[in-house]
Design a protein around this nucleic acid. Structure first.
Lengths: 369, 369
DNA sequence: ATGAAAGCGCTAACAC
DNA sequence: GTGTTAGCGCTTTCAT
């Protein structure tokens, strides 16, 4: 083995094995096209020089990287204090984006791609997307991670798929493939279950004041179920919080409990985090769940199963979303699909647990779930 | 917005905004060094051309990518059937590597790096590492993902840190930084607990036949505890499986139950996956855990808490390992540390749960854990 | 089967 | 402040 300063290049390997750089390149890209004897010589030289092909140079010359990307928002809950850091080393802290990463990685692997992941930490002029976009063959973006216009520009040059974000504007020249989940259907089915099977009559919906198309779709599902069952509710969420966190959920629960008039018999939250926060608050006030009031969430985060009572919610197939995103990208890249963007709608599942009055269904045996 | 075939380059932007390519480059790399007016002109041109800097070209020219990497083995349990696929969309399926990815991603983000991840799916001549190594500034490798010699070669040119793999050979010119966990200590403490607090007298250790230094260290910890307590055990694991999966764990349990002679009073597995498989098998055979036999694992994967009975195990700080790996890489890259490789040893924690006879400690209220 | 030469798109001196 | 000019390390025709 020889070692001398800078990283060896094709030139070094070529020289040492007495061939041209073209042949060295061939040995790696298309071994069959080189006489075995020559090939061995090259490989041997590469080995003792410690040669590793430069991915950058390759990408530059061949115009493809073999890498897919994912951009997601930097929405980690603060974990500065020691306790939180401890808890973070745990599945309960699994974020939405972590699941999507898993799904994408698997699918990418199957197709021979590696995965580049980056969170949107607000940086300088070089937006995150640009950084990722410049290093991959195609990528997925979690909704509201980056301005849509920027994506619009980039998607002119490479496949981009939008995750969980409903098509923003149908009028714009939209070239992005989309993957959404059945927010409307899921919330409607969950609400119907509450009304029909648990006799809920005065449900309160707690939504977000942010511009969240997902939350809006969920609310519409809620309304539809109420209307179908003849349950009267206002045309607006009873409470709108700022950030859909546990703290906000707890606050919302307090507000609803202290309000004049009859207390709602169900708190229907737009996401799990808020619902969990509410469970805390209700316990503090000695309000029984589901006895005094039913509570539900949306998302199906791991934590939803761990809290007591376990949370009835609507489970989103996040892993599948990741996989679907890769499939879409690969289709575009392989040229097996061209033309207009598509929208894939993934189904959700209502998960009935203790917080709505359905029995707790902890596994009896050592099941895997 | 103009759109015409190939992706626009610095030349296109330069021409359209009436400056040189150097200025275009400056606008992105060092905006301050360009007169605001000029800068705006360039940015505008870039915008309507749909210009995105090529990461490859940048990397080539600047010799750095702003990306860190992770290579890990393709060791997911098979999830081809529908049921498993369902379960996979769940935190329970979180693997060792997933946690490390999370840890690395966080830390990388803090340092302004993106993360490239790739599983070692055995490919052609171009080994996985080479692919990753060629596209990142430095990377981490999960032990036994790739041949050490290959790493040896690569680590001559860029920082590499080995995760969870004890330094293989002290005699070789080892340039890799290492991150290990206290396998020996953890297994010894767990075993001691079994013997002292649960009266275990005939423990059986189930290890791996693969060359796994981790598993070996654990076994030595097991032996040490037995010896200290005067419990007689052989100098070899009672069973060695091939791949440390659930299936193999189940098989090992079967074997131990059917063997002639007295059945062991404890199955001490080298990892959680096997232990979980064993729980299944034992349930099928109506062997009570921990009543008839105590079962323990190692790793502390999320699933270990979800199975019934919940699994007593040794928890590895996987998230921390990922973070530590990034810190080490960044130190090397920033030049703040040079010279001999270091070894970081991270502590583990014995987690006492139901499968060893300690009470189940499910949260009472809606706690977050 | 192998070599020669022209880029791929960008950064980094170095001039002006 | 801005332009000029070399490369960075590889792939890829096109010859031979």
């Amino acid at each position: 083995m020889t070692d001398s300063g800078a990283a060896p290049t094709v030139y070094d390997v070529a020289e040492r094995s007495g061939v041209s750089i073209a042949t060295v390149s061939r040995v790696y890209r298309n071994p069959e096209s080189v006489r075995p004897e020559t090939r061995e010589r090259v490989l041997a030289a590469a080995r003792d020089l410690g040669y590793v092909p430069s991915g950058n140079a390759r990408g530059l010359a061949s115009r493809s990287t073999g890498v897919l990307g994912l951009c997601f928002p930097d929405s980690s809950d603060p974990d500065t204090d020691a306790e939180a850091a401890e808890a973070a080393d745990d599945d309960a802290a699994m974020l939405y984006s972590d699941q999507i990463i898993r799904g994408m990685e698997r699918a990418a692997r199957r197709h021979g791609y590696a995965l580049l992941i980056a969170a949107s930490l607000k940086d300088g002029p070089e937006s995150l997307v640009a950084k990722v976009a410049g290093r991959v063959d195609g990528f997925a973006v979690l909704a509201r991670t980056v301005p849509t216009v920027e994506l619009e520009v980039i998607s002119r040059r490479q496949p981009v798929v939008m995750l969980a974000g409903p098509r923003e504007s149908l009028d714009t020249a939209d070239r992005l493939d989309h993957i959404e989940v059945a927010n409307f259907d899921g919330q409607r089915e969950l609400t119907r279950h509450l009304i029909e099977d648990h006799g809920v009559r005065r449900p309160a919906y707690i939504g977000s004041s942010e511009e969240s198309p997902d939350a809006e779709a969920r609310f519409r599902g809620f309304l539809a179920a109420c209307r179908d069952a003849g349950v009267e509710v206002g045309g607006e969420p009873v409470v709108r919080v700022g950030t859909m966190t546990q703290a906000e959920g707890a606050r919302a629960a307090e507000v609803l409990c202290e309000r004049a008039g009859e207390r709602p018999d169900a708190f229907v939250f737009a996401n799990d985090q808020m619902a969990v926060g509410a469970l805390h608050a209700l316990e503090r006030r000695r309000v029984k769940v589901p006895g005094d009031v039913v509570v539900t969430g949306f998302d199906g985060i791991p934590l939803s199963r761990l809290v007591r009572p376990s949370l009835t919610t609507v489970h989103q197939p996040m892993l599948r979303m990741g996989e679907a995103a890769v499939e879409l990208l690969v289709e575009r890249l392989s040229g097996s699909r061209t033309g207009d963007p598509v929208s894939v709608m993934l189904p959700v599942t209502v998960v009935r647990r203790a917080s709505c009055g359905c029995g707790d269904e902890e596994p009896a045996g050592p099941g895997e779930r």
